[in-house]
Simulated assay, not measured.
Amino acid sequence: MIIQTFHDLTVELLAVLEDRTIAEREDKIERFTQLIDQRDALLSQIKPPFTFEEQQLGRATMLLNEQVDRMLSLQKLEIKRDIQEINKKKKSSNKYTNPYESLSIDGMFYDKRN
């Protein structure tokens, strides 16, 4: 049953997104990308008519999918925040290595004794 497999993949995807024990972010991203690709492949195969059981499973899957969407949004915000932090550190490190870079020098001298 395709809908059951889709539901199982959604449950697994939610578990991966909620799992805080995965140490490497890249591993986590790779795993949920695989699951999303598998779900996408199944999505094109889901066609009506649906039995009552399939409808119930579909509704449950839709609720899980909303949770998945929220978790993916949180992951996106976390990654965006980390990128901003890295850029800020890079900028402050640059200022430390070359502190006079941001000063504007226009080459003008003003003698006030005249």
Rank of each mutant, 00 (worst) to 15 (best):
M1I: 14
I2T: 12
F6Y: 08
F6A: 03
H7P: 01
H7D: 10
L9G: 01
T10E: 00
T10N: 08
T10V: 11
V11Q: 07
V11I: 09
V11T: 13
E12N: 05
L13N: 06
L13K: 02
L14V: 10
A15V: 08
L17V: 06
L17Q: 06
L17K: 07
D19M: 03
D19E: 06
D19W: 02
R20A: 12
I22W: 01
I22D: 00
I22T: 09
E24Y: 05
E26R: 09
D27C: 06
K28V: 10
I29P: 00
E30D: 14
F32L: 05
L35S: 00
D37G: 14
Q38M: 14
R39T: 02
D40R: 14
A41K: 12
L42G: 05
S44L: 11
Q45Y: 00
I46H: 03
I46V: 09
I46W: 04
K47D: 10
P48A: 00
P48D: 05
F50P: 01
T51F: 12
T51H: 06
E53A: 11
E54S: 00
E54L: 11
L57W: 04
L57S: 04
G58H: 03
R59Y: 11
R59E: 13
T61G: 06
L64Q: 08
L64P: 04
N65L: 04
N65C: 03
E66N: 08
E66C: 04
Q67H: 10
D69V: 14
D69K: 13
R70P: 04
R70N: 11
M71G: 07
L72K: 10
Q75D: 13
Q75P: 03
K76Q: 13
I79C: 08
D82L: 03
I83C: 11
Q84L: 11
E85H: 10
E85A: 09
I86H: 06
N87H: 13
K88L: 09
K90V: 15
K91W: 11
S92I: 14
S93I: 07
K95M: 13
K95I: 15
T97C: 12
N98H: 09
Y100K: 12
Y100W: 06
S102V: 10
I105V: 05
I105D: 08
D106I: 01
D106Q: 07
D106G: 01
G107K: 05
G107R: 00
M108C: 09
Y110W: 12
Y110T: 14
D111S: 10
R113I: 08
